[in-house]
Amino acid sequence: MATGRTTATFLPPVMEARRWLQGVDFPPNRPLINVSQAAPVDPPPEDLCKVIAEAAINQPEAHLYGPVLGLPELRTEVAKQWNVAYGGTLMPDNIAITSGCNQAFCATIASLCSDHDEVILPTPWYFNHKMWLDMSGITTVPLKTGTDLLPDPIAADALITDKTRAIVLVTPNNPGGVEYPSELVQAFYDLAQRRGIKLVIDETYRDFDARSGAPHNLFQDTDWDTTLIQLYSFSKAFRLTGHRVGAITAATALLSEIEKFLDTVTICPNQLGQIAAVWGMQNLSHWLAGERDEILDRRAAIHDNFHKLEAKGWQLLGCGAYFAYVQHPFAKPSDEVARDLVREAGVLMLPGTMFHPDNEPRASREFRVAFANVDRVQIGELFDRLAQLNWPLAPRVDSA
């Protein structure tokens, strides 16, 4: 029987949820509505697929080991575009390319923390962050959010100890969907700077932020690299999920430490994926703008249809990027409701118990709705199905 570090954490939530589908039939007139996972299911645009195919055929070096920290042309392009977007003065040496954003997080934590160090995560949290901290022997310190799903810097300050190494923020947020205001991000940066810890900001969903302009001004600080580490994913922007391409923006000295981790784990990121990412950044800005418009329309569809559920006691706690985060009205806890939804409503979505510490009361009332792969019509159908449920109700309480 396994007794290693993996036993310190839970099973992958998305894989667990998929097992709930086993043995369940979905009739043609009521197909499954899957809002459990945010990863795009469509392939990249055709022109990008051709770039990948041509590189596979005509660039023999694309099949060999490449630089551990990524192709120079991609690191240069990220630095260039980030400087335009954030008003910074980043250099290519501030950028590392990773095998997806999850690896970016793992490598960052490995470079910052040792056994029994502490990392502060706002709740509800992104479960893979919690899983890696568990498997690394690092203590996760939950930072509770209120009904607005925004973390409080003052509350975070009270949680910092001599073992705290970092605060992690995800904005736009997974699972909550909320976009952290620039002033809030700045307040966390100031806190981390003052307390001598790192602020790790996962901006996987930055391309689908509803706001125009930079979501924060942190890269404009000449000393940003003493405090800030930014994570990013090309998977959502260009539908490159299977190619596993992410990025870290950080101090060059920290990237030298991160290089040790990356060389040991994957040696180098996927070269074909990196070639695709460079070409996408240079040629697909208009296409990506269209993708953003579609996601924003689906976000609007959540708001347009939510009145159907509001009348039944549901509450919309957060909505943005790929996610809505909701409170259900039923007497059963969300992990039980989730299984019932598969059988009785043909709906697969993840319960709040997957995004909170064990025994957190509010988790039993919450759900994440990942709407990136359902269009406006399907969102309407989703809410119609949920509104038709006549299950026993719980006493009405606030989510906070």
Rank of each mutant, 00 (worst) to 15 (best):
F323S: 14
R30T: 10
L32H: 08
N128Q: 11
L64Y: 06
S399G: 08
L71Y: 03
L284D: 07
R30C: 04
A110G: 00
A155I: 02
Y232H: 14
V51M: 06
Q271D: 00
F219C: 01
K163Q: 15
Q230R: 14
M135I: 01
R165C: 12
Q327Y: 03
D293K: 13
Y180V: 00
H328I: 03
P92C: 05
D340N: 11
R195N: 11
V141K: 14
L11C: 01
V337D: 01
A158K: 13
A387S: 15
L159P: 07
Q388P: 00
P72R: 10
A210Q: 09
E336N: 03
Y65P: 05
V170S: 12
D384W: 00
G137E: 13
L74Y: 05
G280S: 03
A338Q: 03
I379P: 06
Y189F: 15
S334E: 00
Q81F: 02
R19L: 15
R244M: 14
I120H: 12
D134F: 02
A394C: 03
W125Y: 15
R339A: 13
P153N: 12
F306M: 03
T9Y: 03
T266Y: 12
K332N: 02
L48W: 10
L382D: 09
D152I: 07
N390I: 01
A107T: 08
T98M: 10
I109N: 12
F371E: 09
A156R: 05
L350I: 14
P181L: 12
L218Y: 12
R343N: 07
I201R: 13
E61N: 06
F26L: 10
E344Y: 13
W20N: 05
K130I: 00
I154L: 14
Q230I: 01
P124C: 01
T140A: 14
P43E: 05
N283Q: 09
A107L: 00
L143E: 11
R362A: 11
L169D: 11
L74T: 04
D42P: 00
A276L: 10
E179N: 13
A363L: 01
K236H: 14
Y86W: 09
T164R: 10
G66F: 03
W125D: 07
L350W: 02
D202F: 09
A107H: 09
G380M: 08
T171N: 05
F234D: 11
R368Y: 00
T164K: 07
P181C: 09
Q81M: 07
E203T: 11
Q271E: 08
P28Q: 02
G87V: 07
R19D: 05
E366V: 01
N94T: 02
C113A: 15
G88Y: 06
P151M: 07
M131V: 03
I275Q: 06
